[in-house]
Amino acid sequence: DEDSERELEKLRKNNASKEEIKEVLKRLGFSEDEAKKLAEKAG
Rank of each mutant, 00 (worst) to 15 (best):
Asp1Met: 13
Asp1Arg: 14
Asp1Thr: 12
Asp1Gln: 13
Asp1Tyr: 13
Asp1Trp: 14
Glu2Trp: 15
Glu2Ser: 12
Glu2His: 11
Glu2Gly: 11
Asp3Gln: 10
Asp3Gly: 09
Asp3Arg: 12
Asp3Tyr: 12
Asp3Thr: 11
Asp3Trp: 13
Asp3Met: 12
Ser4Arg: 13
Ser4Ile: 15
Ser4Gly: 10
Ser4Asn: 09
Glu5Thr: 10
Glu5Met: 14
Glu5Trp: 15
Glu5Val: 13
Glu5Gln: 12
Glu5Tyr: 14
Arg6Pro: 05
Arg6Gly: 07
Arg6Asp: 08
Arg6Ile: 08
Arg6His: 08
Glu7Trp: 15
Glu7Phe: 14
Glu7Ile: 15
Glu7His: 08
Glu7Val: 15
Glu7Leu: 15
Glu7Gly: 03
Glu7Pro: 01
Leu8Ala: 03
Leu8Met: 06
Leu8Asn: 01
Leu8Val: 05
Leu8Asp: 01
Leu8Phe: 06
Leu8Glu: 01
Leu8Pro: 01
Leu8Tyr: 06
Glu9Ser: 11
Glu9Ala: 12
Glu9Trp: 02
Glu9Tyr: 03
Glu9Pro: 05
Glu9Thr: 09
Glu9Arg: 14
Lys10Gln: 09
Lys10Phe: 11
Lys10Met: 11
Lys10Asp: 05
Leu11His: 02
Leu11Ser: 02
Leu11Pro: 01
Leu11Ile: 03
Arg12Asp: 01
Arg12Leu: 14
Arg12His: 06
Arg12Lys: 07
Arg12Gln: 06
Arg12Ala: 04
Lys13Gly: 06
Lys13Ser: 09
Lys13Ala: 10
Lys13Val: 07
Lys13Trp: 08
Lys13Asp: 04
Asn14Met: 14
Asn14Pro: 03
Asn14Ser: 11
Asn15Glu: 05
Asn15Met: 10
Asn15Val: 03
Asn15Leu: 09
Asn15Thr: 04
Asn15Lys: 10
Asn15Asp: 04
Asn15Ala: 07
Asn15Tyr: 09
Ala16Tyr: 08
Ala16Trp: 08
Ala16Asp: 02
Ala16Met: 12
Ala16Ser: 05
Ala16Thr: 03
Ala16Ile: 06
Ala16Val: 05
Ala16Arg: 06
Ala16Lys: 04
Ser17Ala: 05
Ser17Val: 03
Ser17Arg: 06
Lys18Val: 14
Lys18Asn: 08
Lys18His: 08
Lys18Phe: 15
Lys18Glu: 12
Lys18Leu: 14
Glu19Trp: 08
Glu19Val: 03
Glu19Cys: 09
Glu19Gly: 03
Glu19Ala: 08
Glu19Asn: 05
Glu19Arg: 04
Glu19Ser: 06
Glu20Thr: 08
Glu20Asn: 03
Glu20Val: 08
Glu20Met: 11
Glu20Lys: 09
Ile21Asn: 00
Ile21Met: 07
Ile21Lys: 00
Ile21Leu: 06
Ile21Val: 04
Ile21Phe: 06
Ile21Asp: 01
Lys22Gly: 02
Lys22Ala: 12
Lys22Leu: 15
Lys22Glu: 15
Glu23Tyr: 00
Glu23Cys: 15
Glu23Phe: 01
Glu23Gly: 04
Glu23Leu: 09
Glu23Thr: 04
Glu23Val: 04
Glu23Trp: 03
Glu23His: 05
Glu23Asp: 08
Glu23Ser: 07
Glu23Pro: 00
Val24Ser: 08
Val24Glu: 05
Val24Gly: 03
Val24Thr: 09
Val24Lys: 06
Val24Ile: 10
Leu25Gln: 00
Leu25Arg: 01
Leu25Glu: 00
Leu25Ser: 00
Leu25His: 00
Leu25Val: 00
Leu25Lys: 00
Leu25Asp: 00
Lys26Val: 12
Lys26Ser: 05
Lys26Asp: 03
Lys26Arg: 13
Lys26Leu: 14
Arg27Ala: 08
Arg27Leu: 09
Arg27Ser: 08
Arg27Asn: 06
Arg27Glu: 03
Arg27Asp: 02
Arg27Tyr: 03
Arg27Lys: 11
Arg27Pro: 00
Arg27Val: 03
Leu28Lys: 02
Leu28Ala: 03
Leu28Trp: 04
Leu28His: 02
Leu28Gly: 01
Gly29Pro: 00
Gly29Asp: 00
Gly29Leu: 00
Gly29Phe: 00
Gly29Gln: 00
Gly29Ile: 00
Gly29Glu: 01
Phe30Asp: 01
Phe30Met: 06
Phe30Tyr: 11
Phe30Trp: 09
Phe30Gly: 00
Phe30Val: 03
Ser31Cys: 07
Ser31Trp: 01
Ser31Thr: 11
Ser31Ile: 02
Ser31Tyr: 02
Ser31Asp: 06
Ser31Met: 04
Ser31Asn: 06
Ser31Pro: 06
Ser31His: 03
Glu32Trp: 03
Glu32Lys: 02
Glu32Ser: 03
Glu32Asn: 03
Glu32Leu: 02
Glu32His: 03
Glu32Thr: 03
Glu32Ala: 04
Asp33Thr: 06
Asp33Lys: 06
Asp33His: 07
Asp33Val: 07
Asp33Phe: 07
Asp33Tyr: 08
Asp33Ser: 08
Glu34Asp: 10
Glu34Thr: 06
Ala35Val: 07
Ala35Gln: 03
Ala35Ile: 12
Ala35Ser: 04
Ala35Arg: 01
Lys36Leu: 14
Lys36His: 12
Lys36Thr: 14
Lys36Val: 13
Lys36Pro: 02
Lys36Ser: 14
Lys36Gly: 12
Lys36Tyr: 09
Lys37Gly: 06
Lys37Glu: 11
Lys37Asp: 09
Lys37Arg: 13
Lys37Gln: 10
Lys37Tyr: 11
Leu38Pro: 02
Leu38Tyr: 09
Leu38Trp: 13
Leu38Gly: 02
Leu38Thr: 04
Ala39Glu: 02
Ala39Gly: 02
Glu40Ile: 05
Glu40Cys: 13
Glu40His: 07
Glu40Trp: 07
Glu40Thr: 06
Glu40Val: 07
Glu40Leu: 06
Lys41Ala: 13
Lys41Val: 12
Lys41Gly: 12
Lys41Pro: 08
Lys41Phe: 12
Ala42Thr: 10
Ala42Asn: 13
Ala42Tyr: 15
Ala42Pro: 08
Gly43Val: 14
Gly43Trp: 15
Gly43Glu: 10
Gly43Ala: 12
Gly43Thr: 13
Gly43Leu: 13
Gly43Lys: 10
